[in-house]
Nucleic acid binder design. Sequence first.
DNA 1: GGGCGGGCTGAAGGGTTCCTGAAGACCTGA
DNA 2: TCAGGTCTTCAGGAACCCTTCAGCCCGCCC
Lengths: 225, 225
Amino acid sequence: MRVLVVEDEQRLALAIKHGLEVEGFSVDIVHDGLSGLARATDHTYDVIILDIMLPGLNGYRVCSRLRAAGSDAGILMLTAKDGEWDEAEALDTGADDYLSKPFSFVVLVARLKALARRIGSRAPRRTVLGDLVVDSAARTCTRAGTAIALTPREFAVLDHLARRAGEAVSKREILEEVWDSGPDSDPNTVEVHISALRRKIDAPFGRSAVQTVRGSGYRLAADGG
Amino acid sequence: MRVLVVEDEQRLALAIKHGLEVEGFSVDIVHDGLSGLARATDHTYDVIILDIMLPGLNGYRVCSRLRAAGSDAGILMLTAKDGEWDEAEALDTGADDYLSKPFSFVVLVARLKALARRIGSRAPRRTVLGDLVVDSAARTCTRAGTAIALTPREFAVLDHLARRAGEAVSKREILEEVWDSGPDSDPNTVEVHISALRRKIDAPFGRSAVQTVRGSGYRLAADGG
DNA sequence: GGGCGGGCTGAAGGGTTCCTGAAGACCTGA
DNA sequence: TCAGGTCTTCAGGAACCCTTCAGCCCGCCC
């Protein structure tokens, strides 16, 4: 996950960089609006953290020019909390989210991750696991060249497993990601859909890509089973 | 979940300790920076709660030295002052989060849990010990390329030993970490699972990765036995 | 040698987790 | 409103796992 920080206060910028790197993001910094614009158009970033008060070119302008140039990066605006700079205006110019200074670092990370998730799901993506292909953008699934019809829920479950292929994923997490539900939802719902998935993508082919990890959840075999 | 509290105000330190123990954390206390540094390097902690104003060596220095020494524990800084620069400096020196005094205990616990979760996901995904491989994310175990089926409890025990490979780990600690249980649980439960583990990952290969440390617990050989 | 504490392990029951067919609720489009 | 498809809930049953117990071994110390 690549992040560009456009912020003229050096120490704050460094603190953000450092903190985010600990979180596993890869971070670049520039200190004024024009450099930000240049850098963001020259390179590809997933998310841009953009201060509004910048020397040279202010954040609003950077943001709208980026959008005009077709950038689809996620943009998180940093606004000073006095009323001079308007959050609504930030969103108007094409920002995806905003945060008032001073902010808690924990909140920044949370927002960034939420944004990254949205961006991530916006990006086209295709996962190949042996002869099993899951295409998130097209919302299709094929095995050995044969198209497989899946219901929306089934596909969402498969897609989520595919994004973390090879890893054990808990029912709890699947519920949260696919159903957007609280912690008290019924895990059996997941089980039923897993069952349906197996019937469609495994059984007819004599394979077992969808594996049960007892006590912990499910795993989509990285080699397609 | 092991927590070290480095805090010179005795009453506050004790209050934190008691409160966290009720929450199921296992807590040690030291009262100055040097002891904190020593203790944190001698033992393994998941999270270190670090006051900034400490006699001897202040929190920033303890933190940066710990990071320089390669510690990957989660570090939560306690700061008496308020404001952006404290936060920035804390994060600069490698802290993961910070909290301004006075703080609510509920907030402390929430932050701690959030941090513990992040640390958990930052933890190495795979541990390689000779020809024995323990993959925490996939929840799989292989020896010499052969996949080994383990039950949830067996895997949890192995995983915990693997995270501290080469170190002796007490049954007490295993009970706390894997079973999340009080001090009055039956150590024989651990013994039974260790026995099962040996039958699966050692016996068939004529090896002995799982070693008994009489009177003290078990150790997973760093070279796979 | 005998007693003792610590550790090992096979067996079994009781409990938990998971699977799956079926039924009804729900949504959507015509 | 109806039809068709989809989702969730329910419940039975199967598979599996955990703990407990009891008997045993082993090393150590008196």
